[in-house]
């Protein structure tokens, strides 16, 4: 296996494009190295992107945030502006693995691993995040929800790499939240994850995005769940409708981490809890 650590994105693209064997991008490596250890992944080439300065930083600008692909979730958690604007996204990212894993894992890696249970993905989608993809033909930017196409599968073409995730600025009357359910308090994979982003107008929800993880082959946006909240003060009735809409949208599988029936049920429960937090954050920011 060859190991390359280029210092420019151009070199990354070139290496990936040229490789005839199995090539992988190494950022945090917390999924990749596990796959290698278990003999499930046998790369011919690893391209380490951590030596590219632009990949290592979180940038803030007038239009929002740009999270470099090699920024660890621990670093993201230490970014005060991000934490203030998008607490749900940061909390979701910080739920991935232990402190040790946090020191390495990245949201882009979490996205590209394309696990249906990825914690950061529902929160990113709810926040309207976009992925900046670089390939031999240049850059393209697509919505995060369009990256994963199925378990372990992405829309990235050979030689393409995600350079960064962008997030808009959060408005003053908006708030986001992410909650997941796991049997253990830590070190676990979501049985269900829910990301919610709400905007208020005059105390009522005017915009909402509700995204579920671990209940379908990819994270899913649930417009009916958003509808249930829009125009409400997230009252009891709205929450009941939210829960019902979330459960109705679930298409989970039975597996070692939870039955389909359980996931469907818990999706509603976690959505209600997340909505309350997001509503509070949207209100308190106002």
């Amino acid at each position: 296996m060859r190991y390359e650590s280029p210092t420019t994105i151009k070199e990354v693209v070139g290496l990936l494009k040229k490789e005839r064997g199995k090539a992988f991008v190494l950022a945090g490596g917390t999924d990749l190295l596990v796959g290698m250890k278990l003999g499930m992944i046998e790369p011919d080439l690893l391209v380490d992107i951590k030596h590219i300065p632009a990949m290592r930083t979180v940038k803030t600008s007038k239009t929002g945030f740009r999270i470099g692909a090699a920024v660890s979730c621990a670093e993201l958690g230490e970014h005060k502006a991000m934490k203030k604007a998008w607490p749900g996204v940061v909390e979701a990212a910080n739920l991935i693995g232990s402190d040790q894993v946090q020191g390495r894992c990245t949201v882009v890696g979490n996205l590209c691993n394309a696990s249906p249970a990825a914690d950061s993905v529902p929160a990113l989608i709810a926040a309207g995040a976009k992925a900046v993809i670089v390939g031999a033909d240049g850059r393209r930017t697509i919505a995060v929800e369009n990256i994963a196409t199925g378990p372990g599968k992405t829309c990235l073409k050979k030689g393409e790499v995600i350079e960064a995730i962008t997030l808009p600025n959060q408005t003053k009357t908006s708030g986001d939240a992410y909650l997941r359910f796991t049997p253990r308090t830590e070190m676990d994979i979501a049985v269900v994850g829910v990301g919610i982003n709400l905007t208020l107008e005059k105390g009522l929800v005017s915009k909402a995005r509700v995204v579920l993880g671990a209940v379908a082959p990819t994270a899913i946006t649930v417009p009916e769940a958003a509808e249930a909240l829009i125009g409400t003060k997230v009252d009891k009735k709205a929450l009941e409708n939210l829960a019902a809409a979330c459960s109705a949208a679930c298409r989970p599988i039975d597996d070692k981490r939870g039955s389909a029936e359980y996931r469907t049920r818990i999706a509603g429960v976690m959505a209600v809890r997340a909505a309350k937090i997001a509503f509070k954050r949207a209100g308190s920011a106002a």
Partner: peptide
Amino acid sequence: LQNAGFLDYRIPVCSD
């Protein structure tokens, strides 16, 4: 065996 690892064979962690 589907859970031959510490991720899915869930022994208590400190926060549990």
